[in-house]
Amino acid sequence: MKRLGLFQFAGFRYAVPLPRLLRVVHRCRCFPLPRLPHGVMSVLVDESRLVPLLNLHELLFAHGAAATSADYVVLIESEAGRIALPADTTSRIVPEAKGRIISLDETDAAAKSGEFHYQRNRFAILDVDNLIMSLLQTFGIPEVSSPGAGGIND
């Protein structure tokens, strides 16, 4: 049975397939580093390795209105290694069968693979690897064009 991890950040709802979502950490200690690239808020230490905490809002909406910290971090395994995403409400894990998956057409967001409709709410299903790819493409470019991806607002 496929399951999705659900979380919210800055008023938007997101879903990550469970094999990629490792765990959620509450009040994680985050550390600033100099010269972090656009889209990276800070780093945290998990199992003796550094994990970049991505500025999800800035990456998806290409502006700097995102928070600089979060109550929770969602640890995710990607093709480019472990990453962390900020979350400001308690996450839940739900079976896909409890809701409805809506596929997106090709014109939709690169970092979003679909939508999960669950209990009258819509969650953007994050395509983590595409999100990382778009991040790598923006390194060194101060003005990033929006990948067109978005969470689903309240």
Binding site: L33, V51, G81, F139
Partner: peptide
């Protein structure tokens, strides 16, 4: 992290 190596 591989993600940061190039930038830092």
């Amino acid at each position: 992290p591989p993600l940061l190596k190039g930038a830092l």
